[in-house]
């Protein structure tokens, strides 16, 4: 009789543990998805901004063609990568695009007329803000991924993760070129 009770208690405890870890994992994975959606919104916004920007800049005579073409090409590549669903490929392509854009912004400094154009200034503000939002939401996404991956890998939740096929998520690792350039010199103590 008491063996039956012990077995029931053990089974109930096991179920409770399963239930708890499963929900915890689902929760963490949803957080990752949410954070990803945030980045996605900003990346899409950037795709939309670029044609306008190129159109505005193109009107200025002698504007460096190569820089503009690099931006357009990088945008197309990034958009193609966005349909693949592979975070790694995507973050690389987006990194390229950020690099091309920041080079464009450096070139723009040489055209004072452009900097006086209201339309361009509005676009530039929007682009700066979108870049910032991308980098801030990337930070949030990576934090969520780190927490989720820790959950997936740590015992005992890792058993549950294996049973229900929770896979590790990839970080949006590729720091944009702009970030690399902006990185402060490392100070060693």
């Amino acid at each position: 009789m008491w063996i039956l009770v012990v077995v029931i208690v053990i089974v109930v405890l096991l179920l409770l543990f399963l239930w708890g870890s499963y929900n915890g994992l689902v929760n963490a994975r949803n957080q990752v998805k949410n954070a990803w959606a945030q980045i996605d919104v900003q990346l899409k916004r950037r795709y939309d901004l670029i044609p306008n920007l190129v159109e505005t800049v193109k009107g200025y005579k002698n504007f460096e063609r190569d820089t503009l073409e690099a931006v357009t090409k990088a945008r197309t590549a990034a958009q193609t990568a966005s349909t693949s669903g592979d975070v790694g490929a995507r973050s690389a392509a987006e990194g390229e695009l950020s690099g091309a854009l920041s080079r464009l912004m450096v070139v723009v400094e040489k055209y004072p007329d452009l900097k006086a154009n209201q339309n361009f200034l509005a676009l530039q503000e929007e682009l700066t803000s979108t870049e910032n939002k991308i980098s801030f939401s990337r930070q949030a996404y990576n934090d969520e991924v780190l927490q989720y991956n820790n959950k997936v890998q740590q015992f005992p939740a890792t058993i549950v993760a294996g049973m229900f096929n929770f896979k590790k998520e990839q970080e949006f690792l590729q720091a944009t070129t702009a970030d690399v350039e902006r990185q402060a010199p490392k100070v060693s103590f």
């Binding site: 509005a122 503000e125 929007e126 803000s129 910032n132 801030f136 939401s137 949030a140």
Partner: peptide, 16 residues
Amino acid sequence: HQQLYDVVEEMKIASG
């Protein structure tokens, strides 16, 4: 004021 709005939104994202 687009810039002010943008900056607040950026900080909203950064702070979570």
